[in-house]
Amino acid sequence: MEKLNLLSKCKSQMNQPVIKNFLNDENNYALFNKALQEPSNTESIKKLDEAFQRYYKSIKILGYISKLIYFYSIDFDKKRNNHKNKEVYIKDKDSKIDDETLQEVYFSSKKDLTFEGFQNHQSFLDRIEDEKLYKNIKSLKPLQLRILELIYVQGLSNKEAASVLGESEQTISYNHRAALKKLKNNLEEMVNYG
């Protein structure tokens, strides 16, 4: 009986979304009604309690794991970035390489990318095995082709690709998306209409 008094005393709790959603389920609502009608029947109250516990726990688990996935993926990316930025090469003391050569080695990656990329331009297309994709990819603008190559073959980020090409990051991002979208549309058309 005292449990039912709780209901009238704590009406605000009944408006909690959890309770509302819980009672939206037919079976749960039936249990709830039964418990109200037979307040002395501990069995029906117990059933309601148990059903609610299971429901509440499942929601908690869903929320917990969803958050875990989200925050862990953010954290993972931060760690990866940190590692990438901190990992700097140190020259051995008795290394015979002079500073100039060393500098060239350090900073050559930027120089090479443009140069090599330019040389490899043909080989990027050659790497594509799928015939349909090959046909389609040739219809892209040269800039888009370069961007796809820098991002997927060389593994650069938007920022790095922007500095290599001397374009803004927005241009890279836009053209990257546009290129993928165009490829997707063209491929879908090919599949649909032979």
């Binding site: 449990k3 709780l6 209901l7 005393k9 704590c10 605000s12 709790q13 009944m14 909690q16 959890v18 309770i19 109250i45 309601l48 309690d49 148990e50 059903a51 609610f52 516990q53 509440y56 726990k57 908690k60």
Partner: peptide, 11 residues
Amino acid sequence: VPTFFEFIDCE
């Protein structure tokens, strides 16, 4: 997790 009536109990 709380039971139904534990959850309802605002006191």
